[in-house]
Every structure is written in C-alpha cells, then in structure tokens.
C-alpha cells in the first residue's frame, strides 16, 4: 500500500521538481559565469504580468496561452532592460530593478482588478507554485509505470518540463564550445569571429524557456533558487566547466528530492500532521548546499 501512495502522490511531484531544477540549473551555469545571474530573477518576476494578460485575453487558464504570455513578457522585459541600459545610460542592475518591479506591480494590479475568483490564478500561485497538487490519481502502484493507459494520465506538467529540459540539454550540447568560450573570455570568442552578442542572447532565451516552463509547475522561488544556488555551489567545487555543470545538476537533483521529502515527511517525523511548502523547502536545501560549498568547497577562493 505504501508503494501505491508513493507512486501516485509523491513520485510525479518529485520527478517534476527534479526536471525543473535541472532545466534551470543548466543555463544558470552560464548566467553565473557571465555575471548575469539576476536575469533569472528578473524573468521569473515578469512572468506574472505575462500570464495575467494571457488570461485576460483568452479567458482560460490553459497551459499554452499562459506559456506564450509568459514568454512574451520575458522578451518584453529583456528588450526593455537593454533599451533603458543603452538609451538612458543606466547601470544594468538598476535598469533590471526598474523593469521587473514595474512589470510585477502591473501584473499584481491587473490581477486584483480582474475577476479571477473563478479560476486558480493568484500571486501566491505564481510565487510558490503548487508542486504538491501535481498528483497521478490513476496510478495503482509501481506497475503503473509500464502501463501506457495510466502513463497517458500523468500530470501534463511532467511532459512539458521533460520537453523543456530536453531542449535546454540539446542546446547546451550543440553550442558547447561557443558557450564555453564566450562565458570565460568574450574578447577571445570575438576574435575567433563568433557572434558573441547572439550567443549571449541565446543563453538568456534558454534561461527564459526554462523559467517559463518551470514557473507553472513549481513557482518562481524554485526557478530563482535553481538558476543560482546549484551553479554557484558547483563553481566552488571545480575549475572545469564540464565538471561544474555536472556538479550543478547533481546539486539540483539533490535539492529537489531532499527538499520535497523533507517538506512532505519532515513535519511528520517531528510529530506534526501537516506538511510545509515544498517549493520553499527545495530552495532552502539548495541554499544549505551552497553554504556547505562556500565553507568547504575545494575551489571556494579565486
């Protein structure tokens, strides 16, 4: 009976959390090396107005229009940040701060103004997602994993997240050499004749794709935490990019699994009946991993 409960209630959220964590951590490595980590923060804030506008236009909370709206908002934000930075000669951190707070405020206001009481759409959902609710009611136990009829009824978020992770992986594998060169030495890459501006834009697009796919399932907190904490911890473990990426993925998986299990079962072990937020716990675990790496990592100093 334990097997049934685990497969139906815990396995899908864990798998989705792991996929989301890895999909965000992978591009996070390159953002970290390019000192653009906070782009991930900005993107995950502006996703809110994107989904609200998509909802107001279509009247549904279907996945596709939401994703399109979120992606469009991410593009608007990136373009606006760049425009303010160049045209207004504003420092990039401040330009980012202006745009993501204004767009997030706009999203909150739209949400409060429109009638969304009938659907499940609120700020809290965008912030900390709803990992716990992504359950697989049709599972009857481990044997369901080889039953096509039951597999077809897995939460659709799982397939979306798997697809996003596959795309991010493929892009990283295809463009490994230019990604590596531009992240460490943009001038050198430029001298080889590579379009560094285009590659930089590609990294941001990859990050946006991961963020948009992940926020729906797991919320912004995990997205931001996974963009930064696993790659940052991995950076303190090694000097080689390939090894760093591998470490970051391992840390992402560890955070997702351990975070979910602790959130779901931790309070039970302590004698409480209710569980705590899985998204928050996953972010907390990733922070603890980073803290350990910062204290004991072999390459923690420059």
């Amino acid at each position: 009976m334990m097997g049934y409960e685990f497969v139906a209630l815990s396995l899908p959220p864990i798998v989705i959390g792991v996929l989301a964590a890895m999909a965000c951590a992978l591009p996070g490595n390159f953002l970290l090396l390019r000192r653009q980590s906070l782009i991930g923060d900005a993107i995950s804030h502006v996703v809110l107005p994107g989904i609200v506008v998509a909802f107001l236009l279509t009247g549904t909370v279907a996945a596709l229009p939401m994703m399109v709206g979120a992606a469009a908002a991410a593009v608007v934000a990136v373009v606006a940040i760049e425009a303010i930075r160049r045209l207004g000669r504003v420092e990039s951190g401040a330009a980012m701060g202006v745009i993501f707070t204004a767009m997030f405020a706009g999203g909150v206001l739209l949400l409060e103004q429109s009638d969304t009481s009938s659907v499940h759409l609120d700020v809290e959902h965008a912030l900390y997602g709803n990992l716990e609710s992504l359950i697989w009611l049709d599972a009857v136990g481990w044997q369901s994993l080889i039953d096509p009829a039951a597999l077809a009824l897995l939460p659709p978020e799982l397939w979306r997240m798997a697809l996003a992770f596959a795309v991010v992986c493929l892009a990283t594998w295809l463009f490994w050499r230019p990604l590596k060169a531009t992240s460490f030495d943009e001038g050198f890459a430029q001298s080889l004749g590579w379009p560094t501006g285009l590659i930089g834009m590609g990294i941001v697009i990859m990050a946006a794709l991961a963020a948009v796919a992940a926020f729906d399932a797991v919320g912004s907190i995990i997205v931001i935490a996974m963009f930064i904490c696993p790659p940052a911890a991995a950076r303190l473990m090694t000097n080689r990019l390939g090894t760093q990426v591998a470490w970051s993925l391992a840390f992402a998986v560890l955070s997702a699994v351990l975070g979910y299990v602790l959130a779901g079962y931790g309070p039970l072990w302590l004698g409480y009946s209710a569980s705590v937020s899985a998204a928050g716990m996953i972010a907390t675990i990733s922070g603890l991993i980073l803290a350990l790496a910062a204290l004991f990592g072999p390459h923690r100093r420059a």
């Binding site: 970290l32 000192r35 653009q36 980590s37 906070l38 991930g40 923060d41 951190g93 907190i221 995990i222 931001i224 935490a225 963009f227 930064i228 904490c229 940052a232 950076r235 303190l236 998204a279 928050g280 716990m281 996953i282 972010a283 907390t284 990733s286 922070g287 980073l290 910062a294 990592g297 390459h299 923690r300 100093r301 420059a302």
Partner: peptide
C-alpha cells in the same frame, strides 16, 4: 570569502531566505 560575484550572492540570498 568566495569567488562568487556580488550578483550571484544577492540572488542566492534572496531566493533561499525567501524560500525558507
């Protein structure tokens, strides 16, 4: 004390503290 840049430190602190 580490080789992480300030923006990474900011992002790590804000997401982890908020998550907690």
């Amino acid at each position: 004390t580490t080789r992480l840049s300030e923006d990474a430190a900011i992002g790590a602190v804000l997401s982890v503290f908020f998550g907690f």
